[in-house]
Nucleic acid binder design. Structure first.
Length: 258
DNA sequence: ATGGCTACAGCATGTAGA
């Protein structure tokens, strides 16, 4: 049986519970990682998933910020609710599970455009901690995937021309260098590996950006070598972005051979 | 290169997103 993993930044789960339920019913991922819940853990609209066959583990945050979750139709064990070395960080940006013989980390990487240079430094520090974690997993030969909203356009191919200024935290040279440092540990960018040279986006700003296809590729799945060898498919599922009242992101779906 | 969106807290706008 292939294993299907998905990631979806929902921009408020309370607004998008219906969209997520439709996605689950249609695509049937084994594990789905959500970002930007924008609610407290106890406010997660779990009732919308009654009868779906999915178990939910949400890590919310107050003040309508951040928040991640994992929904699984296969057994999974939550092994971390914060990026290791980051436990004191109150921001809900990380969830890691053990399932189907692998480790999967769902992330909501800091945007880095707010809070001035301090805010940007937080993003780079977070990326450095993520790299240290990935290095430890790879050193242990642990089948490992990191997926989620990375808030990084890795190359010029990953954003519509002119969509962002070169000073934006999503494309700054230091951001891209930190992404490459992750890749160079031996991780495979699943979507890019199967679609080299193609302009594929996972985010379109509200307004006219979707109609103009002026998007960004900022949601990613990075695979360890064991999982890269099993990579069968990686697709952007654009359908949820075309619905009424959508998230500004749309799901990324990765299929691994069983 | 933002906020012309959108969401949230909370009740007037400010913050954040990317």
């Amino acid at each position: 049986m292939p294993l299907r993993l998905a990631s979806f930044n929902v921009n408020s789960i309370r607004k998008r519970a219906g969209a997520v339920r439709r996605f689950l019913d249609r695509v049937q991922p084994d594990l789905l990682f959500l970002q930007e819940l924008k609610c407290r853990t106890e406010e997660f609209p779990a009732a919308a998933f009654d009868g779906s066959g999915y178990r939910i583990h949400a890590i919310g945050q107050g003040a309508g910020r951040n928040g991640v979750a994992v929904l699984g139709r296969i057994p999974f064990e939550v092994v971390a609710e914060a990026l290791p070395g980051d436990e004191a960080d109150a921001q809900a940006r990380y969830v890691e599970v053990a399932a189907a013989g692998l480790r999967a980390a769902g992330i909501y990487l800091p945007n880095g455009n707010s809070g001035g240079e301090e805010g940007y430094a937080y993003k780079l520090a977070w990326m450095a901690r993520l790299r240290a974690l990935a290095a430890a997993r790879l050193d242990a030969f642990q089948p490992f995937v990191i997926l989620g909203d990375f808030n990084v356009c890795p190359t010029a191919l990953d954003l519509a021309p002119g969509a962002l200024p070169p000073t934006d935290a999503l494309v700054r040279p230091e951001t891209r260098a930190a992404w490459r440092a992750l890749e160079h540990l031996g991780l495979t960018d699943a979507l890019r590996a199967l679609h080299p040279g193609q302009r594929l986006y996972t985010y379109w700003d509200y307004g006219s950006a979707f109609d103009l296809n002026a998007g960004l590729r900022i949601d990613h799945a990075l695979l360890s070598a064991e999982l890269a060898e099993r990579l069968e498919a990686a697709e952007v599922d654009v359908a949820p972005r075309a619905e009424d009242s959508p998230s500004d992101h749309t799901p990324l779906v990765v299929t691994l051979a069983g």
